[in-house]
Amino acid sequence: MCLGIPGRIVEISDAANKLATVEIGGVRRPVNIACIVDEEYPVERCLGDWVLVHVGFAMSRIDEEQAARTLEALTELGEVQAELAAMRGSGGG
C-alpha cells in the first residue's frame, strides 16, 4: 500500500498552483506540494527540501535530524552488540 519515495525539490515551477519539480535518483517529475505548505511555510521556502513523494504529491517533509537519529540508534545497536560479543569472547564463553 502506498508506495512513497524520498526526493528533493529542485524547482518551484508554478507557485500559484503549488507545483514543483522533484528529483529522485537523477530523474525529475512534477509534483504538487499543497500538503507541505501553509502560511508559516510558504511555497518558496520548499526549494531544496527533501520530501516524500506519493502519486505525484509531496506528502511529507523529511525530518533530516530524525533520519540521522534513527540511523545513529541503529549504529549504536550494532556497537553494543560488538562489545557484548567481545566481552563474551574474552570471557571464554
Binding site: 529522485i24 535518483g25 537523477g26 530523474v27
Partner: peptide
Amino acid sequence: RSEVKGVCEILG
C-alpha cells in the same frame, strides 16, 4: 544506473 533505480523506485 542511478536514474534507472530512480524510475524503478517511483513506479514500483
